[in-house]
């Protein structure tokens, strides 16, 4: 059962350059079906549109970002609700309670001039009416922190007194205190040391297995995906080009870009020669006609230049957008 769907989602940045409108096609026709009780990883390089995609999934769409077409639907009370049809008040209600967001820079979530306790209080008060502070606020929050293995004393610290890793774990605790159905995490480990990365990943896994909810995790670090994701979607230049189980993505990548990506990963204990894909990722203002990857692909044909391959199922549960495997085109 899916818990979040997108259909033909297009989110562009509209930039006005001397009266001429330019479109940055950051998310270009993406169909997603995120299931209940899974960790879905989104991988891709910087500038491929992965952060824009999850912002759109969270409904954080503000100019210059515009949703040009398509829908984002959350499953609520056994029905699918289109979030762009909701008013602001409804959106505010379901944010953090139904879907929450863990951003990359944890400093931007915690108020730097207030103790951590205040951030928790502020969060909970916005969603629940608290009559008995001790019973309805302090005790549940302390229980929540203890369940996540965090010291309760952090509630009386200011954010700057905590280390970067601790701050990120407090952000995870804050984003999960209302027990959301969906958690979106944007590069939650990127600025951290490896030991602390492991701590944060461990925490996210614990949260997921106790709440049985869904985590959508964006990171460029394939090692993190290998360790935590159930399924992975690979993004390239605004499009989802491959989607499969984690074992399939690492063991049997189909799209030539994914093959380059997996094949170039260095590992300890392996000194064999690794190469990168030739060339560089395209600009999202003027992406190549046809398949976005064909200028860098050594197996490109004339067909790849003329039409865009559609993301279709090649093997059970394994989708790819490449004419090597299927002739299905995107209609444009």
């Amino acid at each position: 059962m899916s818990v979040l769907n997108t259909e033909g989602l297009k989110a562009y940045y509209i930039i006005d350059v001397l009266g001429e409108k330019r479109y940055v096609r950051a998310v270009d026709d993406v169909d997603l079906e995120i299931r209940e009780n899974e960790i879905y990883g989104i991988a891709g390089e910087s500038g491929c549109g992965k952060t824009t995609l999850i912002k759109t999934l969270f409904g954080m769409v503000e100019p210059p970002l515009n949703v040009m077409d398509g829908k984002v639907k959350y499953k609520m009370n056994a029905e699918y609700a289109d979030i762009f049809a909701m008013d602001n008040k409804r959106m505010r209600e379901i944010r953090w309670e139904y879907i929450s967001y863990i951003p990359q820079g944890s400093m931007s979530v915690l108020n730097p001039v207030q103790k951590v306790r205040y951030s928790f209080e502020h969060f909970i008060k916005a969603h629940r009416r608290i009559r008995n502070k001790e019973e309805e606020f302090i005790k549940p929050v302390e229980r929540h922190l203890q369940a996540l293995g965090l010291p309760v004393q952090i509630l009386d610290s200011y954010p700057h007194q905590l280390s970067g890793g601790m701050r990120q774990r407090v952000t995870v605790a804050l984003a999960t205190v209302l027990q959301p159905k969906i958690i979106i995490a944007d590069e939650p480990t990127t600025a951290l040391d490896v030991v602390m990365q492991r701590g944060v990943i461990q925490l996210l896994k614990d949260v997921q297995s106790s709440l049985k909810n869904t985590i959508i995790m964006v990171t460029h670090d394939m090692g993190i995906h290998a360790n935590i994701a159930d399924r992975i979607g690979i993004m390239y230049a605004g499009k989802m080009i491959e989607e499969a189980s984690t074992e399939e993505i690492f063991g049997n990548p189909l799209h030539p870009y994914t093959q380059y990506l997996i094949g170039s990963l260095p590992k300890i204990g392996d000194k064999s020669y690794k190469t990168s894909a030739p060339g560089a990722p395209p600009s999202l203002i003027n992406p190549p006609e046809g398949c976005r990857f064909y200028p860098r692909c050594d197996r490109a044909t004339d067909e790849c230049k003329a039409a865009i391959p559609k993301l279709v199922e090649i093997e059970p549960g394994h989708k790819a957008a490449c004419f090597l495997y299927s002739g299905v085109k995107e209609d444009e």
């Binding site: 492991r198 990943i201 394939m222 063991g251 997996i262 990963l265």
Partner: peptide, 20 residues
Amino acid sequence: LKESIAQPDPRDKWDSRVDL
């Protein structure tokens, strides 16, 4: 440090827990 690295291989996941 070596054990803490997330190896890009789903067959080689972390199997123990860390204490921070």
